[in-house]
């Protein structure tokens, strides 16, 4: 795959894996309203994944579409960030993941909406409206849980602590990112970090929570070096396509 196809693939994989994780909540959330909102976020992510993965296949030009890419690759070919593949854990852990990711995704899509490539720009322009809501939803829950009961506060702190080591990867720029940026297609992810920090700090202050201490980042998702969790996620997600080769659904 060339850099632009890989660029689209990464965006698609982020959305796909997060959508898959959120789908696990369906029917098991703490309240009916939460079930509705998590399903809503999952649905948006699956929609974005479909667009970006189809685009990746189109740019690649090897006859693979979004489904082929989603259901017929193994772990080492997935390019999502490590954050989105983290397990749901309790609700606070799910919210911590969503909080860190949605603010990144909102900034990312806002930047991509100005892409020179109309295909990236169109998907991002639609998706940015969706993820703006996700970011607000996640921030609201961080505040509620952080400034709620003693238990919710402790769980929120633990959730953020679990996810924090995966935040740096979101802003990492490698050759693919540099090529996409140079072509006027991609965003300068490193440049989004300042705005992201501000947003995170603002919500954490409102939640009366301290920013987790800096730590050594865990990286590797963009080049296929994942956590142990992803293989299990894929084996479940890809089951039917793998068990019935050649069938259409």
């Amino acid at each position: 795959m060339d850099a632009l196809a890989t660029y689209a693939l990464r965006l698609g994989d982020d959305s796909l894996i997060l959508g898959q994780r959120l789908g696990e909540w369906c029917g098991h959330a703490p309240a009916l309203e939460v079930d509705l909102s998590l399903a809503n976020v999952a649905l948006d992510q699956i929609g974005q994944a479909t667009h970006f993965l189809n685009l990746a296949g189109e740019i690649e030009g090897a006859g693979r579409d979004g489904d082929k890419l989603a259901f017929h690759r193994d772990v080492m070919d997935f390019t999502n960030c490590l954050l989105v593949e983290q397990q749901n854990g309790d609700f606070a852990q799910t919210i911590a993941r969503q909080f860190l990711f949605s603010h990144y995704q909102e900034l990312m899509f806002a930047a991509l909406a100005a892409s020179k490539d109309a295909r990236f720009a169109a998907i991002a322009a639609k998706a940015v409206k969706e993820v703006t809501y996700h970011a607000t939803l996640a921030s609201d829950w961080v505040v509620r849980l952080g400034d709620g009961t003693e238990e919710s506060r402790a769980r929120m702190i633990a959730g953020l602590d679990w996810m924090w080591r995966f935040a740096d990867e979101l802003f990492e720029m490698d050759d693919v990112d540099a090529a996409a940026l140079a072509a006027g297609v991609g965003a300068d992810k490193a440049a989004l970090r300042g705005a992201w920090d501000q947003r995170i700090d603002l919500a954490l202050a409102d939640a009366t929570l301290a920013r987790p201490a800096a730590r050594r980042p865990v990286l590797g998702g963009r080049t296929g070096r994942h956590s142990e969790h992803l293989g299990h996620l894929l084996s479940e997600m890809q089951f039917l396509q793998r068990a019935y080769p050649g069938a259409t659904w």
Partner: peptide
């Protein structure tokens, strides 16, 4: 499992 979440929302 969701009781602590609903409690937190109410207390907040």
């Amino acid at each position: 499992d969701g009781a602590w979440v609903r409690d937190a929302a109410r207390v907040h």
